[in-house]
Simulated assay, not measured.
Amino acid sequence: MAFEFIDQALEDKARDALQRRRICIDKVSARHIQVDGQQYLNFASNDYLALADQAVSGDFVAGSKSSALVTGYQRTHRLLEAKLCNLLGYERAMLFASGFGANFSVLSTLFHDNKAGQDSAIFQDKLNHASLIDGGLNSSAKLVRFNHNDMGHLRARLEKTRAQNKLIVSEGIFSMDGDGAPLHELKSLADTHSAWLMIDDAHSFGVCGENGLGSVESNVRPDILVITFGKAMGCQGAAVLSSKRVIDYMVQFNREYTYSTAMSPALAEIASTQLERLCDSHSAREALHRHIAQFKAICGDAGIPVQASNSAIQPIVLGDAQSTLNAQQRLAQKGIWLTAIRPPTVPHNTARLRVTLTAAHQQADIEYLVQCLKEVV
């Protein structure tokens, strides 16, 4: 029978405790989530500053009506791009509907030409997000992986390559481990080897730096910076920031940008409002970092092993996928909602409970979470 592979693949996923399922949410905020009428403490949100909980008012136009290269690029899009450029110090920006789309299409486009791709190489951290890896695989450039945050390994890879065009790609904060990239070392290696640096700042922007501007506040300015609006900004979309030269190239050759309906003007207006709120959210950032320090300290006292993460992402690595699922279910019985992350999202034998903290949590929430983790883990 045709397409029997579908049934076999689904059976394999279920057997290995790797089956994914969608859960319909009744209500959700940065602190609480309601599923099937039951309320839980929510430790699975990327709404780090609780900005998604704030209402946005305005007379918004729902649709852009066409692609950005037809009539879809409107004043509200241009104003948002200009605001981002002024804030982060770049010449140009372009908007995308999602961070995945931005990462994937930028890497695919930059090395889309087979002739140029033959003389190009993309150097990616082994723990980079799937959108970055897939974008590299979809390009004509050679994809070279280096061990996570291992600058010696990256240096050796750079010294070995004969590629003329070299791009180093990393995340500012890694989405599954929560640790940060060594930005200064990455930039130094890029400069030494005449390479460019691209940083996906999805989990850094809004959270890291004195003003919440992410990687650029470390005095490192990547050649290409990607920020997403669905994390600390609490809305939807993404932006790629770079030089006028690079963005002009993207406008000419980026197929997703060319052949997709432009971002809704309503989403652009909301993103602009949320960007202003993010810049003013100093007290929320302070609260978030207090919660991170509190969580790590209480886990240490409780003997719960935490990773080398000072971000809102705090993974508890259990290893086995089924054991991780069991722990997630036991926590739900205690009123704690968080996510069991399993392969292929993370490497084999590193399944984990991914705890994400927000500014909306209270001290008692975190104390109760750690108490439950101690009982379950």
Rank of each mutant, 00 (worst) to 15 (best):
W337G: 06
R342L: 14
T356C: 10
Q362S: 14
T358P: 08
I366Q: 08
A360E: 04
I366W: 08
Q333L: 08
N349V: 01
E367W: 00
P343V: 01
T356A: 01
P347W: 03
T358A: 10
L338V: 11
T356P: 01
A364R: 12
P347Q: 06
T345N: 06
W337I: 13
I366G: 12
N349L: 05
L338P: 02
R354P: 00
L353R: 01
T356W: 03
A359K: 12
T350V: 02
R352S: 14
T358I: 06
N349Y: 03
L353M: 02
I341N: 09
T356L: 08
E367G: 12
V346E: 04
H361S: 14
R352L: 13
H361A: 12
V355T: 08
T339N: 12
A364E: 15
V355K: 05
A340E: 08
L338K: 10
H361D: 14
Q362L: 14
T339S: 11
E367A: 04
V355Q: 03
T350Q: 10
T356N: 08
A351L: 09
A360R: 05
E367D: 09
A359T: 04
N349I: 00
D365W: 07
A359Y: 11
V346M: 06
W337Y: 15
H348I: 00
R352K: 14
L338D: 06
E367Q: 13
R342T: 15
V355P: 05
G335N: 10
P343I: 00
I366T: 12
Q333S: 13
Q363Y: 03
L353I: 02
I366P: 13
Q333H: 07
H348C: 00
A364D: 14
D365K: 09
P344T: 01
T356E: 13
V355H: 06
A340W: 08
I336E: 09
A364C: 08
H361G: 12
K334P: 02
A359L: 11
T345F: 07
R354H: 04
L357V: 09
I341M: 11
K334E: 15
Q362M: 11
R354T: 04
D365T: 04
V346K: 06
R354N: 06
T345I: 15
D365G: 11
A360N: 03
Q362I: 03
L338R: 09
V346I: 14
N349Q: 14
I341F: 01
A364S: 15
T358F: 07
R352N: 11
K334F: 03
P344H: 06
Q333M: 10
T339V: 11
L353N: 01
Q362E: 15
L353E: 01
K334T: 02
G335M: 09
H348K: 07
Q333C: 07
Q363D: 15
R352F: 00
I341C: 10
V355N: 05
P344D: 02
Q363F: 02
G335W: 07
L353D: 02
Q362C: 14
T339C: 03
T350H: 06
Q333I: 00
P343S: 04
I336H: 07
A351T: 09
D365C: 08
P343Y: 04
R352P: 00
W337H: 14
P347E: 06
A360D: 03
